[in-house]
Computed example of a mutant assay.
Amino acid sequence: MRVLGIETSCDETGIAIYDDKVGLLANQLYSQVKLHADYGGVVPELASRDHVRKTVPLIQAALKEAHLTAKDIDAVAYTAGPGLVGALLVGATIGQALAFAWQVPAIPVHHMEAHLLAPMLEKTPPPLPFVALLVSGGHTQLVKVTAIGKYQLLGESVDDAAGEAFDKTAKLLGLDYPGGLMLSQLAQKGRANRFIFPRPMTDRPGLDFSFSGLKTFAANTIKNNDDDNQTRADIAYAFEDAVVDTLAIKCKRALIQTGFSRLVIAGGVSANQPLRLKLTKMMQKQCGEIFYARPEFCTDNGAMIAYTGLIRLKTNKNNDLCVTVRPRLPLSALT
């Protein structure tokens, strides 16, 4: 059984084909980073227009890469939300149109569920149950996963998500888009202990996150210190260290609360190396296991959509030809 996956939730066009017996057959990805760089962030209308230009050619390229034709595809999966509404509509419309033309099911996929399941694409997938830390651009969530499709939200960001805080602090430091990646690269040149940033909401019980105050603390630190390269690197290091430490503290609490010994990290920020190192050391101390996807499957991609679509297809979780997308779509909406 082969599923074509279409990802167009934000600024990357991802197309992939997944076979339930062979695995990933094709994976095509186009990034709009250069398109949005001059604006310092994603411009929704430009993103939508670029998805219109790129989606069909990438589908053709994926079929060619897999040495398949339309007759070999058993279903079409597409991201239905959350994301930018215009960008989502491009993928949903094309996905539904292809499904109708090819007479196969069309399967709407939850973007965050796809991130959560991305580590399943690896040779050693995480066994169930586990705690998942989802850290993408606009989301920071801790989820209790007892089975595929059975998710309990344990905690989430009440204001800025970790990825948003990275990007906003990068702007304060004068870094180019994409800011989060640039900040992490700058932090590698920073010195430990020159600046100590707070670990927000770790001095009280609970599993929610808040990174808005950390961004403000960074802004005040930048304002009150010299604007030289080493100082900027030291601030970047302190900020990243605070975010990583905060995420680790909350993950440890979630594992204790659930009694689970497995941790999955997914989403774009899960590619952050200091975060991976911190959580790996933490799980080793607790004699637990940690799982994450390779870097190319951490950011938005079609492979995770195709895989999740296959899972949904096998459980008959597909819809009719109605094109429905939701810019805000909680995991609790899944049935």
Rank of each mutant, 00 (worst) to 15 (best):
V3S: 12
L4E: 02
I6V: 11
D11N: 08
G14D: 09
D19V: 01
D19A: 00
K21C: 13
V22L: 10
G23S: 05
A26T: 04
H36V: 11
G41V: 05
G41K: 06
P44L: 02
D50C: 11
H51S: 04
V52E: 04
V56M: 15
P57D: 08
L58G: 04
Q60V: 14
L63E: 01
E65R: 07
E65W: 11
A66R: 06
A66G: 01
D72V: 07
V76I: 13
A77M: 07
Y78M: 07
G81T: 01
V90P: 01
A92M: 12
L98M: 13
F100R: 01
V104G: 10
V104R: 03
P105W: 04
V109S: 09
H115E: 08
L117N: 05
L117P: 04
M120I: 01
E122S: 14
P127G: 06
V131M: 09
L134V: 05
V135T: 03
G138R: 10
T140D: 03
V143T: 01
V143K: 10
V143N: 10
K144Y: 02
K144E: 14
V145T: 08
V145E: 07
A147D: 15
L154W: 04
S157P: 08
V158N: 07
D159A: 06
D159Y: 01
D160Y: 04
G163T: 08
G163K: 00
A165V: 07
F166D: 06
D167E: 05
D167W: 11
L175I: 13
D176W: 01
Y177H: 00
Y177Q: 03
P178F: 02
L181N: 11
L181H: 07
L183W: 05
S184I: 02
S184D: 12
A187H: 03
Q188N: 12
K189P: 11
G190H: 05
R191T: 13
R191C: 02
R191E: 13
N193T: 10
P200R: 05
T202Q: 12
G206M: 00
L207T: 00
L207Q: 07
S212M: 12
G213Y: 05
A218W: 02
A219C: 14
K223D: 06
N224Q: 15
D227F: 09
D227P: 00
D234T: 06
D234F: 10
A238R: 12
E240Q: 15
L247C: 08
K250M: 13
K252N: 14
K252P: 07
R253E: 13
R253C: 12
L255F: 09
G259P: 10
G259A: 09
F260R: 02
F260D: 05
S261H: 15
I265L: 11
I265G: 08
A266T: 02
V269K: 04
A271K: 11
K278D: 11
L279A: 00
T280F: 00
K285H: 11
C287P: 06
G288M: 07
E289L: 12
E289C: 08
E289P: 06
Y292L: 03
F297M: 06
G302F: 01
G302C: 07
A303L: 02
M304P: 08
A306V: 09
T308R: 13
T308M: 08
T308S: 04
R312H: 14
L313M: 12
T315C: 10
T315S: 15
T315H: 15
K317N: 14
C322N: 04
C322L: 09
T324V: 12
R326H: 14
R328Q: 14
A333G: 09
L334S: 10
